[in-house]
C-alpha cells in the first residue's frame, strides 16, 4: 500500500536576501493536504517573496521548499502540482470565460479536449456556466475573481497559491469565493493564501502564519493564536484625545499596552472585566492622559496581529 503524503507544502528554513535587506529570514511552514492556510503580514513582510519562491520563480539563498516531496526548482514536477492565482485578474479580457479557461488549460499542459472538459467543469463549479460565453471584461468583479481562481485549478493542482483572492469584491462575492475555497479544500487540495484581510483569514483558514520583516512570528489555528496571545484575558483598546508625551508613552507601555496608528490608539490584554477596565482608566487619567474612548472586546486575530507586530493590518 502506497502511503499518501499528508504534507503538500513544506518550507524549511527559507532564506533570501535582496542586497542588504533580508526578505526571508529562515521561514519554516507547512500546508497539509485538504487544508487552508493563510499567511498574514503587512507590506514588506515577505509574503510575495515567499510565494515567488514556492512557485519556483525566485531561488532561495538557502533552505528547501518541497511540494509533495518534490523539491521546488529541481525539476518541472512541482510546476504540475502547483496552481497559482495572482492578485490581479490574470486573464485575457477580450476572451470569453470559456475561451479563457480553455487557453489556460492548454497552457497548463492539458490537451485541447481535456482543457475543454476542464473548462466546462470549472465553469459549472464556479457557478459561471450561464456566463460562459460572455467576454471576461463584461463580468462583474466577483465573477472575474471566481474565474481567476478557476483558471488556477484546471490542471487539478495539489497545491493552490492564492494572492489576495478577494481583494476588490463585495461581501456577497467574498462569501461565494470562501465557499469555493472550502469546496476545493474538500477535494483534497492544499490551499495557501496571502491576505491582508484578518476577517477572511479567521473565517476560512485552518491555520495561520503571521509574517513580519521576513520572519514567521506566529503560527497556529486562529483559536490557538488568540489563546496564546490573550489567554483568558479580553482585548482592550484605549483611544486618547491626543498623542501622549514620552513619559505618557512609557507609562502606557508599562501597563502592557502597545501603540497603534499614530500613538493615539493603544491596545493590550486585560485580565478580568469592566472593573479592571475602570481601574486602568482611572490610572491613565491620574497620569494626565486624556481618554477619548475605551473598548473592551473579545480578542480577535486583529488583536493578535496588533500585539505581535504593533501594526494594524488594513484590508
Amino acid at each position: 500500500m502506497v502511503a499518501v503524503p499528508d504534507i503538500v507544502l513544506e518550507i524549511q528554513d527559507a532564506k533570501r536576501r535582496f542586497g542588504r535587506r533580508a526578505a526571508l529570514s529562515g521561514i519554516s511552514f507547512t500546508v497539509r493536504v485538504g487544508e487552508i492556510s493563510a499567511l498574514l503580514g503587512p507590506n514588506g513582510a515577505g509574503k510575495t517573496t515567499l510565494v515567488r519562491a514556492i512557485s519556483g520563480r525566485l531561488p532561495l539563498d538557502s533552505g528547501i521548499i518541497r511540494i509533495l516531496g518534490h523539491r521546488v526548482g529541481s525539476d518541472g514536477a512541482t510546476r504540475r502540482l502547483l496552481g497559482l492565482v495572482p492578485q490581479s485578474i490574470a486573464l485575457y479580457p477580450h476572451l470569453t470565460a470559456r475561451e479563457n479557461l480553455h487557453v489556460m488549460g492548454r497552457l497548463s499542459g492539458l490537451s485541447s479536449r481535456q482543457a475543454a472538459a476542464a473548462a466546462d467543469d470549472a465553469l459549472a463549479r464556479m457557478d459561471l456556466a450561464e456566463r460562459a460565453n460572455d467576454r471576461t471584461k463584461n463580468l462583474s468583479a466577483g465573477m472575474q475573481r471566481r474565474l481567476n481562481i478557476a483558471a488556477g485549478t484546471l490542471h487539478r493542482p495539489r497545491l493552490l497559491l492564492l494572492d489576495e483572492p478577494t481583494v476588490g469584491v463585495d461581501l456577497r462575492a467574498r462569501e461565494r469565493i470562501h465557499d469555493l475555497l472550502r469546496q476545493l479544500r474538500q477535494e483534497g487540495i492544499g490551499i495557501l493564501l496571502t491576505t491582508h484581510d484578518l476577517d477572511q483569514a479567521a473565517e476560512i483558514a485552518d491555520r495561520i502564519g503571521i509574517l513580519s520583516q521576513g520572519r514567521l512570528i506566529a503560527e497556529g489555528t486562529p483559536e490557538s493564536l488568540i489563546r496564546t496571545a490573550f489567554g483568558e484575558a479580553k482585548e482592550l483598546v484605549v483611544r486618547l484625545a491626543r498623542e501622549p508625551d514620552a513619559g505618557g508613552r512609557a507609562f502606557l507601555e508599562g501597563q502592557g499596552l502597545t501603540a497603534i496608528r499614530g500613538k493615539k490608539d493603544w491596545s493590550g490584554r486585560l485580565p478580568g472585566g469592566l472593573t479592571e477596565m475602570s481601574v486602568l482608566g482611572a490610572r491613565l487619567s491620574q497620569r494626565g492622559l486624556a481618554i477619548e474612548e475605551v473598548l473592551l472586546r473579545e480578542p480577535s486575530l486583529r488583536g493578535v496581529f496588533l500585539r505581535l507586530t504593533g501594526e494594524e493590518l488594513t484590508p
Partner: peptide
C-alpha cells in the same frame, strides 16, 4: 503586467511556449 505571465510560468507552461 496583467499577471498572466506569472500564472503561466508558475505552472507547467514556460516562457518558451
Amino acid at each position: 503586467e496583467a499577471g498572466i505571465l506569472e500564472r503561466i510560468i508558475s505552472g507547467p507552461g514556460s516562457t518558451l511556449v
